[in-house]
């Protein structure tokens, strides 16, 4: 069921939502979290779709917020959707005029009470998400630096403004790689001397992975530029040769270890819905991400030409 409300107020939206839920048989009960998406008209469709998808694993109330720019009178339009394609409920709010300065005042009454709030910026995000008026409403704040023109610069800004509960989809994009790397080192190996990460230029996930490896292994980690897509290779130089995971096509990788035949591993790039599902699986702070950002900032401070590659 879908209802559009034009030039409305938060309390009307709330009443309408309650009325619709009652009509559909009380669907609020299954909602385990509020997912607020701070987006714009261009990204709205993809973001809401990804959220719907993630909502199948994590029943949630999705609230999309579009702040319409330009000089316009103050106005709130809302689309309320209940029980279509997903278990929870969905609100899409369009705000304009000075209301844009007070988004939090519209959001607060519409969130399901006593239920975790996650804020997601699929595109542009505030420099310090936790200091943002909307960001403070969330216990988890998800950004995506890959959407930015200067992702490395953005990561450093995020590092400066980091608060527990921040996280970024560029970090989630490294999970499968990191998991495979960890599994690789579950087996005996000779000591690691150095490591290397190759990726297409300006890939924030590669920056994060290199920083993570630096912090974890305590050895020099080189970054190399490749043709992509995404991260294409990670290698460890060990005492008895090189362990290499190479993924040239964005789907399948080859694992080579000294003295063993090459092995084939599936390592596909995941879409935003899958990344978002992963983010929503845990709502406590991701300390490892925080440490990785700090590591990145440390490296940038040591080599002040931020945004360029070391090689």
């Amino acid at each position: 069921m879908k209802v559009e409300l034009i030039d409305t107020t938060a309390s009307t939206v709330r009443n309408e939502l309650m009325r619709m839920c009652q009509q559909m048989g009380g669907l609020t009960t299954g909602v385990v979290l509020n997912l607020v998406i701070m987006t714009d008209e261009a990204d709205q469709y993809d973001a809401m779709r990804a959220a719907t998808h993630a909502g199948r694993e994590h029943p949630c109330q999705v609230v999309g917020v579009i702040a319409r720019t330009g000089r316009r009178p103050r106005r709130l339009d809302a689309e309320v959707t209940v029980g279509e394609n997903m278990p929870g409920q969905m609100l899409l709010l369009r705000m304009q005029g000075e209301m844009n300065e007070h988004v939090d005042s519209v959001l607060t009454p519409l969130l399901v009470p006593d239920t975790p709030v996650v804020i997601w910026w699929p595109g542009r995000a505030p420099k310090a998400p936790a200091a943002d008026p909307v960001g403070v409403l969330g216990q988890r704040r998800i950004t995506d630096v890959a959407a930015d023109e200067a992702p490395r610069q953005r990561l450093l800004e995020l590092a400066a403004g980091y608060r527990p509960g921040d996280t970024d989809l560029a970090w989630a994009r490294t999970t499968n790689w990191r998991s495979l790397l960890a599994a690789t080192l579950d087996r005996p190996y000779a000591g690691i001397i150095e490591a290397a990460v190759a990726a297409e230029a300006d890939n924030p996930s590669a920056d994060l992975m290199a920083a993570w490896l630096t912090g974890r292994l305590g050895v020099p980690v080189h970054q190399e530029v490749s043709d992509g897509p995404g991260v294409t290779e990670v290698s460890f130089m060990t005492g008895d040769g090189k362990i290499v995971i190479n993924r040239a096509d964005g789907r399948n990788a080859t694992l080579s270890r000294p003295g063993e035949p090459d092995r084939f591993v599936a390592l596909h790039r995941r879409d935003v819905a899958e990344l978002l599902s992963e983010e929503l699986r845990r709502l406590d702070p991701d300390d490892v991400y925080g440490e990785t950002l700090a590591e990145l900032a440390k490296a940038a401070a040591a080599a002040p030409v931020a945004g360029t590659d070391e090689e």
Binding site: R187, P188, E278
Partner: peptide
Amino acid sequence: MANPLRDPRDRRIPRVAEPS
């Protein structure tokens, strides 16, 4: 030897079976 890439706080990295 403990695996340097594993950290109990790193909840994103799943338990993966050993080669078997």
